[in-house]
Simulated scan of single mutants.
Amino acid sequence: MSVAPSLPATELPLVGSTDSTPDVVDGLAFAKLYGEPLFKLPNDLYIPPDALEIFLEAFEGPLDLLLYLIRKQNFNILDIPMAQVTLQYLEYVEQIRKHNLELAAEYLLMAAMLIEIKSRMLLPVNKTETGDEAEDPRAELVRRLLEYEQMKLAAYDLNAVPQLGRDFLHAQVFIETNTVLHWPHVDVVDLQAAWADVLKRATLVAHHKISREELSVREHMTGILRRLQSAKFVEFSDLFDPSKGAPVLVVNFVALLELAKETLIEITQAEAFAPIYVRLSYSPA
């Protein structure tokens, strides 16, 4: 029986460190054995050497691993102890080289660079032709580490900025902007039926009377406009007086059509089959 937990990169133990796994983690089980929660490691538990593996895929590259080793042990990045750091770096790389040669290639390149710097630091320091001391072999590595750390911190800051689709979404609100009332269109058939109803009521009160009367369409147009000025809406049938006879009704109806033709009045209704109303045309300011 073996338990092989995988450790994240930020919690990797250093080589040679003791096991600090707590017996109980916040009252929660840290593993399951045959479906049962395991709150404490058995005393006779055997963990093979290959059970605890360090996954270098968690690091973003050789510089990330090197910076992790330096910061983990609180080394001064301007005065790196090359012997100790190089030894720990090689131990990390050796663990993954056995399983993933392609991934270890770039880490081996950095290891070669660390060994070269370590070797140069063991040699006597020679002065340059101008009499100045030679540049520290660690200078280029320190510069790269500082630049990498600066870019890494900037990436963390950018990732903390709220992002659309991850931290928030655009709110969409639909507002009805069309406030103009559109009255139902008065069909010709409806107007014809209303006129037929007026004529029918006119015949009921008609009297046989022979007389000569001159009727003016313009006068009836003026009379209709005056009638509409005193009311907002007037029902179609109220504009006709059946007691005046069919000739007057015809002239009055022609006057009504002329006013509608000249867009001086509007003929409308609230809904289909509703009473027809007449009003003055609306003239916007």
Score class of each variant (00 low, 15 high):
residue 132 D to Q: 14
residue 138 R to V: 02
residue 185 H to G: 14
residue 174 F to Y: 15
residue 158 L to S: 09
residue 160 A to S: 12
residue 143 R to L: 03
residue 172 Q to S: 14
residue 179 T to F: 13
residue 141 L to S: 01
residue 155 A to M: 12
residue 169 L to F: 14
residue 155 A to P: 03
residue 134 A to Q: 06
residue 167 D to H: 12
residue 160 A to F: 09
residue 176 E to Y: 09
residue 159 N to S: 13
residue 156 Y to W: 13
residue 136 D to A: 07
residue 126 N to Y: 12
residue 124 P to E: 06
residue 124 P to M: 05
residue 154 A to Y: 01
residue 136 D to P: 02
residue 166 R to S: 10
residue 173 V to T: 08
residue 159 N to L: 13
residue 176 E to F: 11
residue 181 L to E: 12
residue 138 R to S: 04
residue 175 I to W: 10
residue 135 E to F: 10
residue 161 V to D: 05
residue 132 D to P: 04
residue 137 P to M: 06
residue 154 A to R: 01
residue 185 H to Q: 15
residue 141 L to R: 01
residue 159 N to R: 14
residue 185 H to E: 15
residue 183 W to Y: 14
residue 123 L to N: 07
residue 152 K to F: 01
residue 133 E to N: 07
residue 136 D to T: 03
residue 128 T to I: 11
residue 156 Y to A: 06
residue 183 W to K: 09
residue 181 L to N: 12
residue 164 L to A: 06
residue 142 V to S: 00
residue 131 G to T: 03
residue 124 P to H: 05
residue 130 T to V: 08
residue 165 G to C: 02
residue 146 L to P: 00
residue 143 R to P: 00
residue 123 L to F: 10
residue 179 T to D: 12
residue 154 A to E: 03
residue 181 L to D: 11
residue 160 A to Q: 11
residue 156 Y to M: 09
residue 148 Y to Q: 00
residue 152 K to R: 10
residue 142 V to P: 00
residue 159 N to T: 11
residue 136 D to I: 04
residue 173 V to F: 08
residue 159 N to M: 14
residue 123 L to M: 10
residue 166 R to W: 06
residue 145 L to Y: 02
residue 134 A to Y: 03
residue 158 L to I: 10
residue 152 K to L: 01
residue 176 E to K: 11
residue 129 E to Q: 13
residue 124 P to F: 04
residue 136 D to Y: 03
residue 127 K to E: 03
residue 175 I to H: 10
residue 164 L to D: 02
residue 143 R to N: 02
residue 161 V to H: 08
residue 139 A to Y: 07
residue 158 L to A: 12
residue 128 T to W: 11
residue 141 L to E: 01
residue 125 V to F: 13
residue 138 R to K: 07
residue 173 V to N: 08
residue 131 G to P: 01
